[in-house]
């Protein structure tokens, strides 16, 4: 009897774990089934090469490029801001800061990641954009610069926290070796520790990129809803995620082509983040073996 109970419990626990695989399968199935329906009507070559995205207009175009460029532009701005700052923070906290300071500053920084993104969107729209407009005259009310920068603030803790863990995991013997030869902390950090922790740091950057690409509310609120193929950070753009929100807010009929566009956009987004996540997982796996 006891044996039976144990087996039953184990099977139930296993089932719960297997549900996570069902979720992934569900995501892939849902996205690809609707996307397949979409591509029956829109040739995939148009989807990839057309430079306009106007599914909600009478003159319909279904080129993903403008949405993709909007996504990449805002993400690039966010990363260009968050990586140098986040990495500097991680080096400062791991190598320079007194231990007591380190203990209190880490949760404080993680608070930045806890703020809901809709709040960041409001911040970008009502504080950062007007501030930037005061010295960038041509800046539009909706723009990728402000959205990207605020998104950068949001992902700073992703970069700093994981990089700091990686730096911290470098064996102390390397630190001592470098100090023992007369390195300053700065030389030790950049010549010895950062190279030694490079895999962990790369993982943190990849995860930050993935996070930026999938971020929705900040860009939906502050970057605008005008899909356009541009690298100009001062004009309104639309990201993949913002487009999905835009359609979801409207009254789009289930089964219509417009409805299916959000799944075509969704699967594009999913493929990007899936590749980035898988890549970072591989590196992380290798990195873990190195130190254990």
């Amino acid at each position: 009897m006891r044996k039976f109970k144990e087996v039953f419990i184990e099977k139930s626990l296993l089932t719960s774990a297997l549900i996570t695989i069902l979720i992934t399968l569900g995501i892939i199935l849902v996205l690809s089934l609707e996307a397949v329906n979409f591509f029956r009507e829109v040739p995939i070559i148009d989807f990839l090469t057309d430079t306009q995205w106007t599914p909600l207009f009478t003159d319909k175009h279904f080129g993903i490029m403008p949405l993709l460029s909007g996504t990449l532009l805002t993400s690039f701005i966010a990363i260009a801001f968050a990586v140098p700052v986040g990495l500097s923070i991680s080096i400062y906290i791991s190598e320079y800061a007194p231990r007591s300071f380190r203990k209190s500053i880490k949760p404080a920084l993680e608070l930045l990641a806890a703020v809901p993104t809709v709040v960041y969107g409001f911040f970008a729209l009502t504080v950062v954009t007007p501030f930037l407009q005061s010295f960038i005259p041509g800046l539009s009310g909706f723009n990728s610069l402000s959205a990207g920068l605020v998104m950068g603030i949001m992902i700073i803790p992703f970069v700093s926290s994981l990089s700091e863990d990686a730096l911290h995991a470098v064996p102390n013997s390397l630190r001592e070796a470098a100090y023992g030869m007369g390195s300053t902390k700065l030389q030790n950090s950049f010549r010895v520790l950062v190279p030694a922790a490079s895999s962990g740091i790369i993982v943190s950057i990849i995860l930050a990129i993935s996070r930026a690409i999938g971020e929705t509310m900040i860009v939906a609120i502050a970057a605008g809803q005008q899909p356009r193929l541009t690298m100009d950070p001062t004009v309104p753009v639309e990201t993949i995620t913002a487009y999905i929100v835009q359609v979801s807010l409207g009254d789009v009929e289930h089964g219509s082509l417009e409805y299916r566009t959000i799944f075509a956009a969704g699967i594009t987004l999913f493929i990007f983040t899936f590749l980035l996540n898988t890549f970072s997982y591989k590196i992380r796996k290798k990195f873990r073996e190195k130190y254990e």
Partner: peptide
Amino acid sequence: AGVPSIIYGLL
């Protein structure tokens, strides 16, 4: 853990 939240919305 890395799938964007909006994808869960589509699911």
